[in-house]
Amino acid sequence: MQSRSMTLDDLKPGQKGTISSISGVGPLVQRLMALGLLEGSEIAMLRKALGGDPVEVEVMGYALSLRRDEARRIEVVTGDAV
């Protein structure tokens, strides 16, 4: 299986990934990082609300909700091949 790059909102419920980068600067990104969403952090999509927005993810063992626009700023890598 090939590793491919996508954004967090592309993950399907139950799918896991590793954060490869977070685009942009400013308050949102700073908040995400304080919450433990850093490059290299593992992240899992738990579920999506109706219409796929907002989404619920698991990071560092806790559940976090964020909007699709916010999730789009987070690039993730999935798949077992590295």
């Binding site: 907002p54 619920e56 976090l64 909700s65 964020l66 916010e70």
Partner: peptide, 11 residues
Amino acid sequence: PTPTFLIELPP
């Protein structure tokens, strides 16, 4: 700016 919607869903 649109406020962020980062909320923890506690157990």
